Simulated scan of single mutants.
Amino acid sequence: MFFPRKWLLMVAGEKLHVDKSPERFVNVVTGGELKIHLPNPKEYTHHGNAEGLLILHHSRTDTVCLLNPLTMAFVDLPAMAAVHDADVALRGLPSDVRLDEHSIEAAGVVAEGNIPATVVLSLKSGMHTAIVCAKPGDVVWRAVDTSCADEIECELPAIEGGLSLNGRFFVPTRAGDVLALELRPQPKLTLFVARHGSGGDDGEAHEGGLNERYYLAPSGKDDANAGMIMVRSWGPGYIYFDTFAVDVSNTSVSVHEMDGTDTTVFRPSITVRSSAFPHVEANTAYLEGCMDILFHGDDM
Rank of each mutant, 00 (worst) to 15 (best):
L179I: 08
C154E: 01
N166V: 12
E212K: 06
E257D: 13
F74H: 12
A285C: 15
N283T: 00
S269W: 00
L294W: 14
A134P: 02
P278N: 06
C65K: 04
T261N: 03
R267S: 05
N283E: 12
D242L: 06
L53G: 03
M300A: 06
N40P: 04
E160S: 11
H296F: 08
T251Y: 08
L165T: 04
P268N: 11
P172N: 00
G197L: 10
H84I: 10
W234S: 01
E155R: 02
V178A: 02
E281R: 14
M291V: 05
P78W: 07
P157N: 01
A285T: 09
T146D: 06
F244N: 11
I270W: 04
I131D: 13
G13W: 12
K6S: 12
L121C: 03
T251N: 07
V26L: 08
A89H: 12
D145N: 12
F192T: 00
K135Q: 14
R60Y: 06
T63A: 09
V120T: 13
S95C: 08
L9R: 07
E43Y: 12
P157I: 04
I36E: 03
V109S: 10
P268H: 12
T129F: 00
L165Q: 08
L216E: 00
L53I: 14
F266T: 02
G199F: 05
Y238V: 01
V248F: 11
K35G: 11
L216I: 00
S252A: 09
I159G: 01
V272F: 02
A282T: 05
P22W: 13
G48S: 07
E23H: 15
L67E: 03
E153F: 06
Y215R: 00
G126I: 10
N27F: 02
D145T: 03
